[in-house]
């Protein structure tokens, strides 16, 4: 396990560089002149020159890249074009909100998805199974931001059970959870739909397998056979699949934060895009990339803990 962990961590470093490099070069190369992006064609010659100087755009591209990299490693992500304030602290301030949203969504997805998948596998081709397949198909076909809107309309506006704006500036833990609930649910249900499918198909496979037959032949209770033996073997593919899905979740979080008016990295990015804040967009995307790489690393390490083949290499 230790060897595996070290190898994974070491591999993450080039990945982080890769993310930064891709974002940097795509924005520079695919996007035309940054000054055009920022100022449009309204910019006076003077403004353009000033901006070029400020952003160091007259240097060769490689030099710019290295400089940006150096800055990044020192924690400096430049200043926002719009309000001239440093970007890094802005991001760090809103980051926790996005993280808590994503984690909550993952938990909801697993807590709803896994039991549903197991229930469907146990009652194959009967009512619960059909219901689940319909639910998961609909859940997969509904964009999470749309689901958020529907939940908002129903539970917040119509029924008034939940608040409309997704956060509260001050407040204790309960408040935070209360405001977190609907946004996390809208993201989490999509994940639940996905997880329930994976769980169902994996459980069906395990339930017909030899080792489950052996477990029954040992006289174990049905409960132990299903949860201790069959389900535990399913956890590996479920964790793997969830790891892939986290990227999708983070993408969805961007939109959810907009729908629910929650602060977070997503809202930051959306505003930066609306204001054509070049530096902020770039930094925001780099940050997203970094987080996703780190999340993937965490999932891989988690995977190492679960799968005995990896654990005891």
């Amino acid at each position: 396990m230790l060897g595996y962990a070290i190898r994974r961590i070491i591999f993450t470093i080039p990945m982080l560089f890769f993310v930064f490099t891709v974002v940097f070069f795509v924005m520079r190369l695919a996007g035309g002149d940054p000054t055009y992006v920022i100022l449009g064609d309204q910019g006076s010659q003077e403004a353009v020159t000033q901006l070029r100087l400020k952003l160091g755009l007259d240097e060769p591209l490689i030099v710019q890249y290295v400089q940006a990299l150096k800055n990044l490693l020192q924690g400096n992500m430049g200043e926002s074009i719009i309000n001239d304030r440093p970007i890094a602290p802005q991001i760090m301030r809103v980051l926790p909100f996005t993280i808590e949203l994503t984690i909550a969504a993952i938990l909801i997805g697993l807590l709803i998805g896994i039991p549903l998948g197991v229930a469907a596998a146990l009652r194959r081709n009967k009512m619960p199974d059909y219901l689940l397949r319909v639910f998961s198909l609909v859940g997969l076909s509904t964009p999470s931001f749309y689901l958020g809107i529907l939940l908002l309309l129903l539970f917040a506006m119509q029924l008034d059970w939940f608040p409309i704006i997704g956060y509260k500036r001050t407040g204790d833990l309960w408040d935070r959870l209360y405001y977190l609930f609907l946004p996390a649910l809208s993201l989490g249900l999509g994940k639940a739909a996905f997880v329930s499918r994976v769980t169902r198909s994996n459980m069906l496979e395990r339930l017909g397998s030899d080792f489950v037959r052996t477990a029954r032949a040992k006289g174990l209770s049905e409960y132990k056979v299903i949860y201790k033996h069959a389900l535990k073997d399913c956890m590996i593919p479920i964790v793997t699949v969830s790891g892939v899905y986290v990227g999708v979740l983070m993408g969805g979080a961007i939109l959810t934060e907009t729908v629910f008016n929650r602060p977070g990295l997503g809202k930051f990015l959306v505003e930066a895009i609306a204001q054509r804040d070049y530096s902020a967009i770039q930094s925001g995307l780099v940050f997203y990339g970094i987080i996703i790489v780190l999340v993937n690393l965490t999932v891989d390490l988690l995977y190492g803990l679960i799968d005995p083949r990896v654990k005891y290499e």
Binding site: S209, D210, F211, R213, T214, A215, R216, A217, K218, G219, L220, H229, K232, D233, I236, I306, D307, P308, R309
Partner: peptide, 21 residues
């Protein structure tokens, strides 16, 4: 009865044992 009074062993030991324990 199973496993205590009457026990059974199977043909494929590779797949008949749980891989995670």
């Amino acid at each position: 009865i199973r496993g205590e009074k009457i026990s059974m062993i199977f043909q494929e030991p590779a797949t008949s044992l749980s891989p995670v324990f």
